[in-house]
């Protein structure tokens, strides 16, 4: 499931970046980093994005973690425990179908949901900061449900 999501991102980003070039010879991750034929080095940002999964998705106006989101966060927690010197920032995002102020608050709720789960899973709270971007930084362009579903997200970024 996780691979499916990543490959979807790869396609979307290539289309938006190159217009007509649908080539999949270079996979682009959601983080914008490039992954070639070689596997990313363990403990790197690329390793985290490709092999762990840096983001979880939320239902409309919800900050509940789905079973799938929990699975992703379990992997994140495990990885973070493996690399204890790494600190992260959790970004909370909303889709564009809400008002400015509410979406800022909703993004904060989502980031906090992710943080709470990671802390409960054993990651020290002082390694985690949160930030809400509301609807200001969509991952995917487009005014349709498929885009909204990918924009309602919590993204764990390596500091």
């Amino acid at each position: 499931m996780r691979l499916k999501v990543l490959s979807l991102f790869a396609a979307v980003l290539l289309v938006s970046a190159c217009g007509t070039d649908q080539s999949n010879s270079v996979a682009t991750t959601g983080d914008g980093a490039q992954a070639g034929a070689e596997a990313p080095a363990p403990g790197t940002k690329e390793d985290f994005v490709v092999n762990v999964g840096d983001r979880v998705f939320f239902a409309y106006d919800s900050f509940d973690l789905s079973p799938e989101a929990r699975a992703t966060l379990d992997r994140q927690a495990q990885w973070l425990k493996q690399y204890p010197s790494i600190a992260v920032t959790i970004e909370g995002h909303a889709d564009e179908r809400g008002t400015r102020e509410y979406n800022l608050a909703l993004g904060e709720r989502r980031a906090n949901s992710v943080k709470n789960y990671l802390v409960a899973a054993g990651v020290s709270a002082d390694r985690i900061t949160t930030i809400s971007y509301g609807k200001e930084r969509p991952a995917v362009l487009g005014s349709n449900e498929a885009a909204y579903a990918q924009n309602r997200r919590g993204v764990t970024t390596i500091n």
Binding site: F63, E101, A105, E108, R109, N112, N116, S132
Partner: peptide, 9 residues
């Protein structure tokens, strides 16, 4: 203004 912290605004 609003303050958001710990998932509460």
């Amino acid at each position: 203004m609003s303050l958001a912290t710990g998932g509460n605004t």
